[in-house]
């Protein structure tokens, strides 16, 4: 690597010599006298009152055509890019909604867990002890018949 640097320095020395020679030649050129060194400025009023605008129909048509082509190109470009742009935006929206759904499901799970904790038998036991509730004896229990069950009464016969 050291030898490569030395080589490049050697080349650079040659470049320096060439540039010095160029600078000398330029200096000699600047010493030459210019032919007319004085500059004079004049002010001239211009009358535009009689200037007429010439009708250039072909230019109008060409500019209109250029505008239309440009417009068509822009519309085409938009039409080409719009679906993918909409897809991109919708994808972002879907991802946002997915994250929101996951967050809501997670909150729902937390709520379910909390509800289960609140109605767990140990908690209900605590509440009943606080409120001085007692478990009724088996003789006092009247089971509600299941939905759709038919009850018949002897008294009605």
């Amino acid at each position: 690597m050291k030898s490569l640097d030395a080589l490049l320095d050697w080349f650079a020395a040659g470049k320096e010599a060439a540039e010095a020679r160029g600078r000398r030649e330029l200096h000699e050129a600047r010493l030459r006298a210019l032919p007319r060194e004085e500059i004079f400025l004049y002010l001239k009023p211009i009358d535009n009152t009689r200037v007429r605008c010439l009708e250039a129909r072909h230019e109008l048509a060409s500019s209109a055509a250029a505008s239309l082509v440009t417009l068509a190109l822009v519309i085409g470009l938009i039409a080409a890019l719009a679906p993918s742009s909409v897809v991109l935006l919708c994808s972002h929206r879907i991802e946002e909604l997915k994250q929101e759904r996951d967050a809501l499901l997670n909150r729902q799970r937390i709520a379910i867990s909390r509800e289960a904790e609140l109605v767990s038998p140990p908690k209900l036991d605590e509440y009943s002890a606080e409120k001085h509730f007692i478990a009724p004896p088996p003789q006092a229990l009247v089971f509600v018949p299941p939905a759709g069950a038919v009850a018949s009464s002897r008294a009605g016969r």
Partner: peptide
Amino acid sequence: RFAGVERAAGG
């Protein structure tokens, strides 16, 4: 640096 040298050498 190397390119400059080559240009100088070419001249």
